[in-house]
Nucleic acid binder design. Structure first.
Length: 594
RNA sequence: GCGGGUGUAGUUCAGUUGGUUAGAACGCUUCCCUGUCACGGAAGAGGUCGCGGGUUCGAGUCCCGUCACUCGCGCCA
């Protein structure tokens, strides 16, 4: 007979009655009735009830210990079956028991989700991962990745691995650096994304590349942002934007549909028409709007410019180049004062002066700002913002960029306070027509607004035009429920256009050659037009699992400070290691003192 | 770097206006219990109230500082 098991803990049924079996697993729950003892034995496949009488080993064994039991599968007596368990019609009567590993008292409960904090969960992640929730989400991640591979292979893509130790690049996020022992003073960088390698694979003639690629970025974390994460990285040759969309919409929509019932509620999956970046910013105040939120932002600067409108707080800002944005909240005019006060408090907490509003009841405006807006102006305001009887509109007034962004956040906040965010649906769409360049509001300098390697729409001709800020990049994002799932573009494969683009952003040809010489060279030996994108694997899993935090879908993960409390990373290294790497530490005073 | 929130038993939390010996649930220990499945019952152990300072006759509670965690802003093509 097998040493550890003949069956798994989730598989025994009525048809197995009479068999002598061996099961191994963790002591999930123990119910000791004195004369008779029940143990729910758990492995990754499920639970089976073990019954024992007068077994001293089992009486002593603590929860989460690992045991092997041998015994007979018997039918549970009438009235003692458990319809909640797949194995609930049978139980195994233990004849012999081997304790494989005794467990100490565990720091938090495994058999139930007791709300233990992240700090302790991460320190004992292996225990956390035994719990049903984490266990199933990590499995979901595995299944999603398997589905990605299956679907990408079906679309004719080949999977590649690209280097983890590579060169630092000046664009984008901070790199994680690895000192070189063989080359004193030089460093490798961990890839922020395999961007250049995947483009080089197109130059190598491979046509369709994908990789479940690890990416590393040394920037401060967020609930949906980690130091290391995985992307479904994709690149294709001889394609236009629409070709990338066609393939990837198919793949991603398929994945969402495949796992849309993970939470137990079947979610609908909608792929909506493309949205222009400019429209997203204008109507939603965000480059990743959540379209489950029905509210939209309207510009009403013109109304507050009118002579008969005497709200000087806004007029002053408008005079300096500011704008007034508003958000119409339908049917909230009768909400208690506290509804509006709460939003106001929120706005102040976010550093705004407040969130002014006008309600519209019985054909007239009301609320703190209404008295500055006479009837005629009110009518125009209503028409512009689409306000009807019983509605309210909230105002944000600031410099254009700040106003748009804050209106976007207010839009989300108002939506949640109203409780009108749609549930049970994934709303996906592509955002297109990102500007190639942007003006730094502080320095007045023109810089790349997103990816410097994307092809400007209109090519060299467009770049030679009078206003580079009007040039659009062939650049796109895929957004779902307020999360940026994917970023991509059709790449610039022509050195002369790239030189011009970099020149506009203030980088001379020498800089370009020095930093990207390898790839520029490749462009000179026959480069196919190409483009692609990269989907955040874990954000997709996070959405499918309906979790607001990436750490809930990763097996092993660092905390918000990018420390691993289980492995003690990052850690000190020895003097000998430093010497090997030709490094001397120059620590801030605060750290030295500690 | 900045802002919000949190910090009390192993875990999750309560703790009133500053007032006796800081509580609950789960977990843990010992005992009782032959049909439970979140088993039940009895008894018990377990606390630097994050840390330091201050105010006070008296601080978990008030004040100042500090640290940790967490969410967000900045940052992140």
């Amino acid at each position: 007979m097998h040493l550890y098991r003949t069956h798994k803990c989730g598989e025994l049924r009525k048809s197995d009655i009479g068999k002598t079996v061996k099961l191994s697993g963790w002591v999930h729950r123990k119910r000791d009735h004195g004369g008779v003892l029940f143990i729910d034995l758990r492995d990754t496949y499920g639970l089976t009830q073990i019954v024992a009488q007068g077994n001293a080993d089992l009486e002593r064994v603590r929860g989460e210990s690992v045991i092997t039991i041998e015994g007979e599968v018997v039918a549970r007596a009438e009235g003692t079956t458990n319809a909640k368990m797949p194995t609930g019609d049978i139980e195994v009567v233990a004849k012999s028991v081997t304790v494989q590993s005794n467990a100490d008292v565990i720091p938090f409960q495994v058999a139930e989700e007791d709300g233990a904090g992240e700090e302790v969960r991460l320190k004992y992640r292996y225990l956390d991962l035994r719990r049903e929730g984490m266990h199933s989400r990590v499995r979901l991640r595995n299944n999603v990745i398997a589905a990605m591979r299956r679907r990408m292979w079906a679309e004719g893509f080949q999977e590649f691995n690209t280097p983890i130790l590579t060169a630092s690049s000046p664009e984008g996020a901070r790199d994680y650096l690895v000192p070189s022992r063989l080359h004193p003073g030089k460093f490798y960088a961990l890839p922020q994304a395999p961007q250049q390698f995947k483009q080089l694979l197109m130059m190598s003639g491979f046509d369709r590349y994908f990789q479940i690629a690890p990416c590393f970025r040394d920037e401060d974390g967020r609930a949906d942002r980690l130091a290391e994460f995985y992307q479904l990285d994709v690149e294709m040759s001889f394609v236009q934007q629409e070709d990338v969309f066609e393939v990837m919409t198919n793949v991603v929509k398929g994945i969402f549909e495949e796992f849309a019932d993970f939470t137990g509620t079947k979610h609908r999956v909608e792929f909506l028409p493309n949205m222009k970046y400019g429209d997203a910013m204008e109507k939603y105040g965000s480059d990743k709007p959540d379209l489950r939120n029905p509210l939209i932002v309207t510009d009403v600067t013109e109304v507050f410019k009118r002579d008969d409108v005497t709200f000087n707080a806004f007029k002053g800002v408008i005079a300096k180049g500011g704008v007034v944005k508003c958000i119409r909240a339908p049917k909230v005019a009768d909400r208690p004062r506290s509804f509006f006060d709460k939003l106001n408090d929120w706005a102040r907490g976010e550093g705004a002066v407040g969130l002014g509003y006008i309600t519209f009841k019985d054909g007239a405006g009301a609320g703190p700002i209404a008295k500055f807006v006479p009837a005629e102006a009110q009518a125009i305001l209503n028409k512009t913002a689409g306000m009807e009887e019983g509605d309210a509109i909230f105002f944000v007034c600031d410099m254009p960029e700040k106003a748009a962004k804050f209106a976007g956040r207010a839009r989300d906040r108002i939506c949640d306070d109203m409780g009108i965010r749609e549930t049970g649906i994934y709303k996906l769409f592509w955002i297109v027509d990102f500007p190639m360049f942007e003006l730094d509001e502080k320095t007045g300098k023109v810089d790349f607004s997103h990816n410097p390697f994307s092809m400007p729409q209109g090519g060299l001709e467009a770049l030679n035009g009078p206003d580079p800020l009007k040039v659009m990049a062939t650049q796109y994002d895929c957004v779902c429920n307020g999360y940026e799932l994917c970023s991509g573009g059709i790449r610039n494969h022509k050195p002369e256009i790239m030189e011009k683009a970099f020149a506009i952003a203030g980088y001379p040809k020498e800089v370009l050659e020095k930093k990207f010489g390898g790839m520029l060279n490749a462009f000179r030996y026959g480069a196919p037009p190409h483009g692609g994108c990269a989907f955040g694997v874990d954000r997709i899993v996070m959405l499918l699992a309906n979790e607001p935090n990436l750490r809930e879908v990763y097996a092993f993960v660092m905390n918000g400070q990018y420390e691993d409390p289980m492995m003690n990373a990052p850690s000190d290294i020895t003097e000998a290691q430093l010497k090997d790497l030709h490094l001397k530490l120059n620590l801030p005073k605060k750290v030295e003192a500690a």
